[in-house]
Amino acid sequence: MKELFAKHTIVDVLYATAGILFCGFALKGFLVPNSFFDGGITGLSLLLHELYHWPISVVIVVANLPLIIMAGFQVNKGFAIKTFLAIIGLALCLQFIPYPEITSDKLLVSIFGGVFMGIGIGLAMRGGYALDGVEVLALYTGKRISFTISEIILGINIIIFLVAAVELGLPTALYSILTYYCASRTINFVVEGIEEFNGVTIISGQSELIKEELVMTLGKGITIYKGERGFLKDSYNISQPCDIVFTVVTRLELRRLKNIVHELDPKAFVFTNVIKETAGGVLSRHARH
């Protein structure tokens, strides 16, 4: 157990270190020299740096410190300590590593600055670290008001970009929104990976054939719910018992599954939903860190 724990700790630290280096590259190589912003506390730090010319390495630590303390109460002390170490590491990276300025082209800065920032934050998240405390603030606020965490984060970012638009001009704010979008999409890709899972529910009169194909051809595990199909407007009182099939596939397998179901029953009702995390069962996937 100790050896396994030590191995996981080393891997987590490597993820966090790589994430810090990528974030530092995004900030000093793209965003800071061109007065661009991101969302969250990082975006707030960049805005304060641009308006008051405070050192970015100091501003990032000071801006995140109250949220790190809050994380100790809202999440747990271990997460707060790891987040504090990650923020300190990012500040040291920004202070002492001489990243070159890559480009001054606004479109390239907004896109690739966001991409490298997203890679950095995503890698840190895979290691269990956080490089931006805005999620903690949203979690704390969400327990006191009726908004979701996503809505709170969106509101915080809207305020940041509005201030940027007033103080630094609308074009800069718009390019920064593009940066934030690129970063958020990249974070999702890094954390979830290309094998993002989808839950698929199939309601069909040919459920026996579909079950056999899913298990024997695709090699998938399935779960069966007992239900009834029918209840149409012209024949509301007519229904038949059926097996409702549920399975989980990767995004890359989804099209093949739909083709198989359509060949067996063109009238089958199929709907999918994205699954953010999976564990156990017959799924094969690398462990999350």
Rank of each mutant, 00 (worst) to 15 (best):
V190L: 03
S184T: 10
V163G: 01
N188R: 08
I177T: 03
V190S: 01
L178V: 10
Y180C: 05
V163E: 04
T179W: 05
Y180G: 06
I187G: 02
F161K: 10
Y181L: 13
V163R: 05
V163S: 05
I156Y: 06
F197P: 01
G169Q: 11
N157D: 14
L174C: 02
S184V: 14
I194Q: 14
Y175T: 11
E195S: 14
A164L: 06
V191W: 01
L170E: 09
E167H: 07
E192I: 13
P171T: 15
T179L: 01
A165T: 15
I159C: 08
A183P: 01
F189A: 15
I158E: 04
I156P: 00
Y181T: 13
I160L: 07
F197M: 15
R185A: 05
F197G: 07
I156G: 01
G169I: 14
V166T: 12
G193R: 14
L168P: 01
L154G: 02
E195L: 11
G169K: 07
E195F: 12
L168C: 11
L174R: 14
I187F: 00
V190K: 03
N157P: 00
Y181D: 06
P171V: 13
I159W: 09
V190M: 05
V190H: 02
I159Q: 07
Y180N: 11
L178Y: 03
A165F: 04
E196R: 13
T186M: 14
I158C: 00
F197Q: 13
N188H: 11
A164S: 12
A173I: 13
L154E: 07
I177M: 05
L162Y: 10
N188K: 10
L154H: 04
I158A: 09
E195G: 04
I177N: 01
C182H: 08
T179G: 07
I194D: 05
Y180S: 10
T172V: 14
F161W: 11
F197S: 14
E195Q: 15
E192N: 07
I177C: 04
Y180V: 05
T186F: 02
G155T: 11
E192A: 06
T179F: 03
L168Q: 13
T179Q: 02
N157W: 01
E195I: 08
G193D: 10
F189L: 15
E196F: 07
I187Q: 01
G169S: 06
